[in-house]
């Protein structure tokens, strides 16, 4: 007499269905997209800017460090007055580097950015936005990790100001 198969024996090959459960959730999300609240709006030089994280998740591992994705909106018509903009986390604003990581990109109404975060976060880290206008003037803004404004943009621009690049 063959013993009655255990539940495990009977259903073990149905377990891969569990891998489809996240897909049910992601399908719901795909048809009902929602985003976390925007971070505190602030001025960066003559512009105003709003950051919206694309998720509440912690920065994800990427390359030698981490990244977090944001949507960025500037005041009406402001994006066309900007030559380059860069977002990254760290102790001080990153340079407008040759690398594309952290470079704002998209259309003139909304931009996206994959902002680099350091591998070893430090207590004084901020999320820094550096904006350069067509005359080469640079302006700075910073947010605390919880989305609040770190310091007024004027103070930061004064602290890091330099001669235009040309």
């Amino acid at each position: 007499m063959t013993p009655i198969p255990s539940l495990w024996q009977r259903y073990k090959y149905w377990l891969s269905a569990l891998l489809l459960l996240p897909t049910v959730w992601f399908t719901w999300q795909a048809f009902n997209p929602s985003f976390p609240p925007s971070w505190e709006q602030q001025a960066v030089g003559p512009f105003t800017v709003t950051l919206t994280p694309l998720s509440n998740a912690r920065p994800y591992p990427y390359g030698d460090g981490y990244m977090k994705d944001f949507a960025v909106t500037f005041c009406d018509g402001c994006w066309s007055r900007i030559r380059s903009a860069h977002l990254a986390a760290g102790r001080a604003p990153a340079e407008l580097s040759a690398e594309l990581d952290g470079l704002l990109h998209g259309g003139r109404h909304i931009q996206h950015v994959h902002a680099p975060f350091p591998r070893q976060p430090a207590a004084g880290d901020r999320l820094w936005l550096t904006v350069e206008d067509w005359q080469g003037r640079r302006y700075y803004a910073a947010w605390l990790p919880d989305g609040r404004v770190a310091l007024p943009g004027e103070a930061l621009t004064a602290a890091f100001s330099q001669e235009p690049a040309h």
């Binding site: 891998l19 992601f26 399908t27 990427y62 994959h114």
Partner: peptide, 9 residues
């Protein structure tokens, strides 16, 4: 990708 989110790459 079973609608799993993309994280950059």
């Amino acid at each position: 990708w079973l609608l799993f989110p993309w994280q950059h790459s």
